[in-house]
Amino acid sequence: MTNTKQLFSDTCNRLPVSIEVDQLKKQFGRFVVLDNISLKIEPGEIFVLMGPSGSGKSVFLDLLAGLSKPSSGRLSINQEDLQYVKKTKKYVMGLVFQSGALFNSMTIFDNLALYLREHRLFNEREIRSRVTQMLDMLTLKGVSQIMPSELSGGMRKRVALARGLLMEPDILLFDEPTSELDPITAASIIELIGYVNKQLRITTLIVSHDILLAQTIGHHIALLHNGFIQEIYTPQTLPQSSRSFVRNFLNPTIDLNHPRFLPRRHENKIIG
């Protein structure tokens, strides 16, 4: 990984950007998914948004990526409205999807080269060189001519990250980067994200419920619960939180006598 800065010379020369979210609300019909979300992601930091499944984390990511529009509130990058930023293509955003979302009809090489080719950023020789270097950097040598369906889960995530990095983004967004992976592969993905952030200082938002990830590479951590963010923590303050939801989320207890899935009124009958 010695040539990271050389490969991302453009990114290294740019100043990291900040993300501001102000009173953001998103609802589908009458169902409010996100309510009054306000936060600020500092330039170059890793911000981890955690929360139980179905709490609206991915909806938040979609809003930030510009894939859907908020019901109300404001999203801005370096104090410029997101809609304006998307329209003018002022900042580049790389989104690494949970499933990878690799183009299944293309080889890995074509997946990685697509952005550079379609935006005509470099000639074919330079594109080939950049893609090859990126594959080497992420220890993905020898996969360039195979199809995404032939890759393992960890490799798919790494290829998706490579595709995001080749865009030389100002902002990197991750949707559950360690889900469905074994602990070792998950750890290597966490190291990779942390390393890239340290080297390139790309402002990063990670949506995850991986506590290890949040506490090892996150600079700030927010917990989303019932559509709200109640407090923003650092990795040091998170375990000290007095909120019962936070403590329960970090250290869930397994109680076979009072399992969570059973309705309370049936408890006595079944256990008794």
Binding site: G66, L67, M93, F97, S99, A101, L102, L114
Partner: peptide
């Protein structure tokens, strides 16, 4: 369904 279209949109394609 498998988010490939969304991936294109995020790439400004």
């Amino acid at each position: 369904v498998y988010k490939e279209v969304d991936a294109l949109r995020t790439m400004n394609l």
